[in-house]
């Protein structure tokens, strides 16, 4: 028995600007599929980051706004607090969320803001040309760590999901990946679960995605998948770090 597969309604008919093999595209589709399946396109507002996904609003067919670099969680807080009936999500990269925006995401999670954050961890600053990010791996070469990330100088990569999961406020914190179809299908369930927690007004929900950046890693898309699997997954273990039921 075969399967059908269509572009979700929430995705615009638009070829993306992302590089070949960039997993942003997969994550976009998962969000769109979940929004279609939950039937919430009419009351969803997306908050785009500053980074490769800054133009993501061109690829969705519902209300969207740009955020300033790192500030999406604060914007989403303002938006969601005055209109709690709307479904709000932020979509942020590792430079955006874990560097300049760390205070914003930590406090939004700690306040238990009832929006959803999709966090794309591809270990570099993509849009600006592959600089080192808080999630860059030890020894990983980037355009600002040409000799490899020296942990004795700039510290270890930050495991954001674990960090947020350590907050006492209930929340749904999970790390997923889109490196292979089996992971993608699992990740989709996590995204749907995250949005469902928002719809049920239960808690803050956060889905981290271990992702690839072929262009800035200097690898082909296929090699990038392999590198991410071999180098990133051991350091960024997948799974649900926290669920509201536990609290």
């Amino acid at each position: 028995m075969g399967k059908t597969f269509q572009k979700p309604e929430a995705l615009a008919d638009q070829v993306t600007h992302y590089c070949p093999g960039c997993t942003h595209g997969v994550i976009h589709r998962l969000i769109a599929e979940v929004i279609d399946e939950l039937g919430i396109r009419g009351r969803t507002v997306g908050v785009a980051p500053v980074g490769c996904a800054v133009l993501m609003y061109n690829y969705f067919t519902f209300d969207f706004m740009e955020a300033s670099h790192g500030r999406a969680p604060a914007q989403a807080t303002g938006l969601k607090r005055v209109r709690p009936d709307l479904v709000v999500f932020t979509y942020q990269g590792d430079g955006d969320l874990a560097s300049i925006g760390m205070a914003e995401i930590v406090h939004a999670a700690n306040r238990g803001e009832k929006f959803t954050t999709i966090f794309v961890n591809n270990a570099v600053y993509g849009m600006t040309g592959g600089q080192m990010a808080p999630t860059t791996m030890p020894g990983q070469r980037t355009t600002t760590s040409p000799f490899g990330r020296k942990v004795e100088e700039v510290g270890m990569p930050i495991r954001v999901s674990e960090l947020l999961a350590s907050l006492a406020t209930p929340g749904y914190i999970t790390r997923q990946t889109v490196l292979k179809p089996k992971y993608i299908n699992r990740a989709k369930k996590a995204v749907k679960k995250a949005f469902q927690y928002q719809l049920d007004n239960t808690c803050f929900s956060f889905v981290e995605f271990v992702s690839t950046c072929p262009t800035n890693w200097g690898l082909t898309p296929v090699e990038a998948i392999k590198w991410a699997e071999e180098k990133m997954l051991p350091y960024y273990p997948l799974g649900e770090m926290k669920t509201p039921e536990e609290a």
């Binding site: 300033s68 914007q75 303002g78 607090r81 930590v106």
Partner: peptide
């Protein structure tokens, strides 16, 4: 109404932006 103390004035200015963006006075 809605009252919230933000974590910094930086964050507050974007909470203001978010609330204004949804069409509310803030």
């Amino acid at each position: 109404g809605v009252f919230l103390q933000g974590e910094s004035e930086v964050a507050v200015s974007y909470m203001i932006l978010g609330a204004a963006a949804v069409g509310e006075r803030v």
